[in-house]
Nucleic acid binder design. Structure first.
Lengths: 144, 144
DNA sequence: GTCGGTGCAAACACTTTGCATACCT
DNA sequence: AGGTATGCAAAGTGTTTGCACCGAC
């Protein structure tokens, strides 16, 4: 009982009849290793350092499955997918200059009012809020 | 004061040395005509009904220019660009079922607290907040 | 052994771009 | 007239998919 063996993957996968494979393990590890919200190509290259002949298709399928199972989060930036292993509720700040994505925790709402973010060195000049849910007609259809 | 002749396009364009063309006029009109946040293909097809041999490239270039000049807003949904002629500050609700995009005005923040949106028939189950601005390192670099 | 996963390459969807011609100013 | 905008088609980018083989269970 020494080496800490994390097994959230096989657990999560097998529940739904999916298999735990070396590729999926490593894809998950590589996403978790980065706080940088990597895109599929970045993960592909990282995985390829460990499994040289892994295919890009496998990485895309793996990332998609992990996101579907809720083991990672899928973001979208500049029209391409990015992935985040931070599952806690948080928001993102996108730097308009370097295009970096920074995690901002939910206390942002307080900070926005108190100018706390400026104290943290961030300079906010716009925000985009998307609500996800059901519109009236889909909501009604669902309850038929 | 009968026929309302809107001329924001030529005004906006010429300021920066761009030309006012039939294609751009019609592209703008077609975006303004829709509250549905159309994508480039939808606009292309609408424009093509009026200028049958317009090219998709022209539509993309036109939409990009109009967005750059601030005459329309560019959104991003499911990895493809969408356009919105509603320039007032507002947010979006994306229906998880029909994928429709609905405009929500800024009083949403109040409504979120008071469950006012539910009264409007929307069922919210997630939100995505993106802040846009400068991260500490880009902010510092800019002030050098 | 079975059935889902992988590697590979082709196909896809969306968008951008190079170039000769057309047209706005 | 001069230079920007257009039409057309090709190229680019990011992502998905079909299929034969491979490997987890």
């Amino acid at each position: 009982m020494c080496a800490k063996q994390i097994k959230p993957l096989s657990h999560g996968l097998k529940q739904k009849g999916h298999r735990s494979t070396r590729q999926r393990q490593i894809i998950l590890e590589e996403v978790q290793k980065r706080a940088s919200h990597p895109n599929a190509t970045e993960i592909y290259e990282a995985v390829r350092r460990r499994i040289p002949n892994v295919s890009l298709g496998t990485v895309y399928r793996g990332l998609g499955l992990l996101a579907e199972l809720g083991l990672i989060r899928r973001l979208e930036q500049d029209g391409s997918a990015r992935f985040d292993s931070n599952l806690s509720e948080h928001y993102h700040l996108i730097c308009t200059q370097c295009k970096g994505i920074f995690d901002i925790d939910t206390s942002i709402l307080e900070k926005l009012n108190t100018h706390g973010l400026e104290a943290d060195g961030f300079e906010i000049n716009g925000l985009k809020l998307e609500l996800h849910g059901l519109c009236p007609s889909c909501g009604n259809a669902a309850s038929d």
